[in-house]
């Protein structure tokens, strides 16, 4: 079994405000094994980007990890200072592919200059060596080497996103955080970018944290995953675990709400209501108000991590996880009766 490269152990993250604090992440625990691609799925506001920010010390000024441990390669990093993050984590070990590449490249600087600057601060590469490296990486992501001295605006959205991937690889990080890397792109371009991201797995020694609202990207590209709702992790396990045996009601309903082009006649599940505001202490299941199977116990304490089928790597944070296979039997029946309509055309 590979060692975890990143571990979250019962982490709470809060944002201080003038009124009540916002408890953005509560009791989050998960682990990413070395070399694995890990998907973190959830709806907007569920805390998934806060988790990403906390790994590189990028929380807003009023945000703070108030308890729990974040370990990177076994080392606790939750209390690192700015300079410690710069020294030990950012870029060199962990790099980020942000959502909107259009805003994350410096518009008045040639891409080559941006690479040289990065090399200057983090490595002892000479200028020609840095440019060589960038050329090599442009090749990896399918951009023409001759374009390294272009300005960002000369690139289309998809090309900018590929340039960002090249930058993310520049210092050979061991973990890449991709925060909605394809959300701004059209489906054909998304497919190409995900292909490049997937290809990295073979040639680079790198792990990935893929943050997205799109559960299909996670199922296609990741090894393991976590589903988040309202600041809590609902379920974590391998993608096969979560697909074949989801045991948290949200993980179950989310999958049924997701359109699948293979089955256009299937009724989409609807999840009523919305997540709570998280202004008070979160000592309850944040999905309880939306859950068709909630019982009083769900509101009496934060749900415990329950191993599914005795597997300690597949956890559901639900008091009724053990009963779910019966309770949600209707929802767990996959559309095996209706066959995919795509097969015929291929």
């Amino acid at each position: 079994m590979a060692e975890p490269i990143l571990e979250f152990d019962d982490v709470d993250i809060r944002y201080r405000t003038d009124g009540d604090d916002v408890r953005a992440v509560n009791g989050a625990s998960f682990a990413i094994d070395e070399g694995d691609y890990f998907g973190l799925v959830g709806e907007s506001g569920c805390g998934k980007s806060t988790i990403a920010d906390s790994i590189v010390g990028g929380l807003d000024d009023n945000g703070e990890v108030v308890s729990g441990e974040i370990r990177f390669k076994g080392e606790q990093i939750q209390d690192y200072s700015e300079s410690e993050f710069n020294e030990n984590v950012r870029w060199k070990e962990v790099s980020v592919i942000p959502q909107s590449s259009m805003n994350s490249l410096d518009p008045v600087m040639k891409l080559s200059e941006q690479a040289v600057e990065m090399a200057k601060y983090h490595t002892d590469l000479s200028r020609p060596a840095a440019l060589d490296r960038l050329r090599e990486l442009f090749d990896v992501v399918g951009l023409s080497e001759s374009r390294i001295s272009d300005y960002p605006h000369q690139f289309s959205g998809g090309m900018q996103q590929r340039a960002i991937i090249a930058f993310a690889l520049f210092l050979q990080p061991s973990l890449i955080i991709a925060d909605e890397p394809t959300t701004a792109l059209d489906v054909i371009m998304q497919d190409q970018i995900m292909d490049y991201i997937n290809g990295l797995k073979d040639d680079w020694d790198v792990s990935m944290l893929l943050i997205t609202h799109d559960i299909s990207l996670v199922f296609e590209n990741c090894d393991s995953m976590a589903v988040m709702h309202g600041g809590q992790i609902a379920e974590t396990g391998t993608v096969d675990d979560v697909f074949d045996r989801p045991r948290h009601p949200y993980a179950i309903l989310l999958q049924n709400a997701f359109p699948d082009v293979r089955f256009p006649d299937r009724e989409l599940a609807v999840i009523d209501g919305h997540p709570p505001q998280l202004r008070d202490e979160v000592d309850f299941c944040t999905f309880a108000d939306r859950c068709p199977w909630a019982e009083p116990a769900c509101r009496e304490g934060a749900p415990p991590a329950t191993p599914v089928a005795g597997d300690d790597d597949h956890l559901a944070w639900c008091v009724r996880a053990g009963e779910m296979s019966e309770l949600a039997a209707n929802h767990l029946e996959r559309s095996t009766e209706s066959t995919s309509i795509l097969e015929g055309g291929q």
């Binding site: 489906v187 998304q190 299909s216 199922f219 296609e220």
Partner: peptide, 15 residues
């Protein structure tokens, strides 16, 4: 159209 349809990710790790 073929390209569009084949680019849609499918929410099923076994597919």
């Amino acid at each position: 159209t073929q390209a569009l349809i084949r680019s849609i990710p499918i929410p099923d790790p076994h597919y």
